[in-house]
Design a binder for these strands. Sequence first.
DNA 1: CGGAGCGGGATTTTT
DNA 2: TCCCGCTCCG
Length: 810
Amino acid sequence: MLARHNLQRAGFDKRRASPHIGGDDSQKAAVSDPYDDFPGYEPVAPRAGGIAARALAALSPAPDFISALNPEQREAVETTEGPVLVLAGAGTGKTRVLTSRIAHILAQGQARPHQILAVTFTNKAAREMKERIAALIGPSAEGMGWLGTFHAISTKILRRHAELAGLKSNFTILDTDDQMRLLKQILRAENIDEKRWTARTIAYLIDNWKNRGLAPKNVPAGEAQAFANGKGGAIYALYQERLKILNAADFGDLLLETLKIFRENPDVLKDYQQRFKYILVDEYQDTNAVQYLWLRLLAQRTDGGKPNLCCVGDDDQSIYGWRGADVDNILRFEKDFPGAKVIRLERNYRSTGHILAAAAHLIAHNTDRLGKTLFTDGEDGEKPQVSGVWDSEEEARVIGEEIEQLQRQNHSLDEVAILVRASFQMREFEERFITLGLPYKVIGGPRFYERLEIRDALAYLRCTAQPADDLAFERIVNTPKRGLGEASLQIVHDYARRQQIPLMQAARVLVETEELKAKQRSTLRALLKDFERWASEIGQTPHHELAEKILEESGYTDHWKQEKSAEAEGRLENLKELVRSMEEFPDLGAFLEHVSLVMDADNADGGARVSIMTLHGAKGLEFETVFLPGWEEGLFPHQRSLDENGRAGLEEERRLAYVGVTRARRRAKIYFATNRRIHGLWQTTTPSRFLDDLPAAHVQVTENRGSGSGYGAYAQSRFANMDAFGSRYDTPGWKRAQKNGPGGRGPLTIEGEVLSRSTPTGAFAPGDRVFHQKFGPGSVAAVDASKLTIDFDKAGRKLVLDSFVEKTSK
DNA sequence: CGGAGCGGGATTTTT
DNA sequence: TCCCGCTCCG
């Protein structure tokens, strides 16, 4: 038993250590010998008619991945029919089960690769899964077209049926940044006090509604009126309208709109239900209401049979409640899917006995859990250590010293991690490590595609490829600074809004008139020309070269070259990296799609370094030695979690502590400080109540000032009784909105370009007295469609657009 | 238009 | 205390 678990460990480590270069490295994985995973593995004769025998016939050489599993894992892999819930504790071989299960289904010939739906939460998880499947079964893993994140798979489906959701199949996916800008516009238009109700707050609300599967019309009335002076719901509706006009979807829409399509189009749903013979879900405890509803629909068998749905997760590691994940989904599984088989994986292959005992004891204090107890056949090892320090400064110093000590014992720095509750804690460690000259890396900073320069560059590409992309246009119209500021943009904006046309379209009309100052007009005209020229090169020039050209000719790269800061260098590097990465895609469109959904910051660099990251960021990772600083009341458990979510919040914090402890293979070191600076003020702190949740017999206490915190009374969750499952999309308003499209009376457009649009003719005639916001009163001299030549009383003769003037009585 | 100066807010984060 | 975003002024 021990021998096998060592084998498995070796297998896991090896996979994890293999660097991901990006792009398509399935090739590499496919040629590598699957037995590499199991050094010292001794083959067993294939059972007649068994998997090995079958697989051998189809492929050669075929690994017998089944016999490398423990009995529970094996049961989870071989129970392919009917609903299965695999409760996989930390370090019990969860990914191994998922990948082996897929390999098994394929090897048995029960389904073809494209008939398996395998869903993950992160791109990283999806990528790893694909690699590991390829390692098991070879190149046929390539056919797994439906292995991906909830969002990626939803996007794929949504593009196919976009028109059913009031979108065109080339819709843009907005990120948080775009969302904010859009919301700000709406808030301003609605006269909402942006100090009282920030775009961030509203975005959070909308996101929450979407996570719960609620379209604007389904938001409970009380809730819709509880925000933004009673306009919360209305703003959500307006926001959705604007998205449709922009032919755009935000992350929440990807799922919500797909769900809506499934609900309203039984034929479409049926098609997917028949397509997916087997469904697998990773990290099921992290699913939210929409994802749950989405899955439940897809899993339903058209013949009324039981769904072949396999969900893998760990209720004890559910730490994303604050962003909509609902632990109840996993707790309810057996009720949701009658006849479900629940398999517990409790044999841990990662940590030593004391660490496991400490973690198990800690998490046992939670009540909302299915319950499982991890065990190991391995050695007891060192007891987790709990130490008290005077303040956060001493904490950083002591941890620094301990790491140097480990370093002297040849402990690799790659195997050391510091896991903090909140990112402000990182700074103290960084400062200390810089003084010590201890190499470190901070994991989970801004992602590659979220960086300023990358977002700017992408906005240029979006404007080129999708001229109707207003948000992109707004972003770069004055970046680099070209003198097209707020005032000029406002004019373009006003016109576009009034005519309901995209900004670029509006700009094109405006440069023909004198609404804008001469200087701005010529700058804008030049910019529009640039975009036209670049657009004409799509399909001609290879897209990565075109991108480079755009960044050069727009002056964007120069803009950073001129800024001689150390930061600017890095930004230029990132831009180069962006262009380089484009080569892997067939065309600009494919690249933009990838980027909005998938791109990760994958900065692999040499040299061993200590990792500093948040506890959230550490989920799924493991280290030889883990430092857990800041176990103090108010910080961990975090006060806000307690205040906002009461007991549920506390339990989630405790799960976070559990995740932290279980990241350690051999050494876990917990710290609490008695003084900590919070918002600039030094405060005396109390040791975390989680310290008292640890079993004395399995913990080594270096110093303890005792913890005397009592449990306060926690506010009850405000929306405890909201029911997401009663949501419907058949309200008259929603239907109308879908049928007519946003606003219902926009101009006729194709791909965002206006086909026909005319201002009512005859509205103005020569001799009319008019008033212009900027030029004041004047008389119409001549009319040319929507363009008016006007003799202004003060400003003289100007060519302006009719929509900017008002008729005044003579 | 863009820089300086002021006030408010300050968990966790993926897609 | 520190950082970001907004406002005001040159």
